[in-house]
Write a protein that binds this DNA or RNA. Structure first.
Lengths: 148, 148
DNA sequence: ATAATATATTGACACTTGTAAACATATTAA
DNA sequence: TTAATATGTTTACAAGTGTCAATATATTAT
C-alpha cells in the first residue's frame, strides 16, 4: 500500500484524530468520544472503523472479544502528505497569500513562530520578486497569462 | 447556495484553475488546455463543466451556439475557504509544524515572505509556549491528554 | 440458566465522483 | 447540398462515502 495513495475522507479524519491522540483504543472508547462531538450512530462509527482497517489506515489487535485499533501511519506523516497534496493542486501564485491567512488564523506557539521566521529569512535572499503562474500548460498558445 | 458549503472535487479544481486564470472561456478552450495536462476525454470534461454549473461553481453565458463559462466565486475566496476548511479539521498542535513545511516547500515571493514575517512577529508577543491539543472533547474523562 | 449488555458482522441505500459513450443539433467546408 | 465538425444533452456505471438497521455472538449480571 503506497502511503501517498491513501485517501482519508473527512469522516475518517475525525476517527484518525482520536486514535492518533490516544495511541490506540477500542471501538467502544472511540465511539464514546466521537459521539460527544458528532451525531453519528454506533453503527456508523463501526463502519468507518471497518473501512479504515480495510484501507490499511488502522490495524487491529484482538484482545479477547474486542479489537484495539492503532494507526498504521504517524499523524505527522499523514498531515504532511495531505497538506502537500492540497498545496500541490493550487496555483503557485496564490500560495503566499494563503500561508499568510493560515499563519494569521492558526494558534502558534512561540517556538513555531520562531522556526517559521527562521525558515522564511533563509528563503528571502533567493526569493523571486514574483512567483509565476503554473495554471496553464507552459507550451500552449494561451500563455499571454500574466496574473490572475 | 451557501458558498462555504460548496464542495469542489479534485478534478473540478483543475477545471476551476483554468477558468480562474482565463477569466472566462468556452468549453472547447477548456478542453484543449486540460487535455495538455490530463488524460481526460472530451466527454469527461464536458460532464465536469455541467456538474460545476449545476453546483453553482460556474455560470454560463450563451454566445451563439456555445457557452462561455465563468467562475462564480473568486479564486482567492475559494482558496481561503478550502484552506481554512482543511486546517480546521486538524489538531491545533500540528499546525505550526505544518506551516513550516508548507512555507519551506512553496515558492514565495519576497513580498510574500516579508508580509508573512510581519504577521508572525506581531503574533510572537502573545503566543503561548505550547498550543493545546483539541482532538478530544474537553469534558471527557480521557483528558489526561498531554501531547501526541 | 436467563436476560441484558457489549461487540462484531452483514447488508443496504442514496449521493458523489471519475470516467465516458451515444446521441442530437447547429455550423461550416467541400 | 452533403459531409464533416463543433458543441451540447442524455444515459451509464463502478468506486467511494455518509448513514444505519438488523443480526449474530460472546459476556456478565441477576
Amino acid at each position: 500500500m503506497d502511503v501517498s495513495d491513501i485517501n482519508i475522507s473527512p469522516a475518517e479524519w475525525e476517527v484518525m484524530r482520536i486514535v492518533w491522540t490516544l495511541g490506540s483504543a477500542g471501538s467502544t472508547e472511540i465511539i464514546h468520544i466521537l459521539q460527544q462531538q458528532k451525531q453519528w450512530s454506533e453503527s456508523t462509527i463501526k463502519t468507518l472503523l471497518r473501512r479504515q482497517v480495510q484501507k490499511g489506515l488502522l490495524t487491529t489487535t484482538r484482545q479477547g472479544r474486542r479489537f484495539i485499533y492503532t494507526a498504521t501511519i504517524a499523524e505527522k506523516k499523514m498531515l504532511e502528505l495531505a497538506a502537500a497534496n492540497f498545496f500541490n493542486n493550487l496555483c503557485d501564485m496564490q500560495k503566499g497569500h494563503l500561508l499568510i491567512e493560515l499563519a494569521q488564523q492558526s494558534p502558534l506557539s512561540k517556538t513555531d513562530i520562531q522556526q517559521l521566521i527562521a525558515v522564511l529569512q533563509q528563503k528571502l535572499p533567493n526569493a523571486p520578486d514574483k512567483v509565476a503562474c503554473n495554471c496553464l500548460p507552459q507550451q500552449c498558445q494561451y500563455c499571454a497569462q500574466e496574473e490572475h
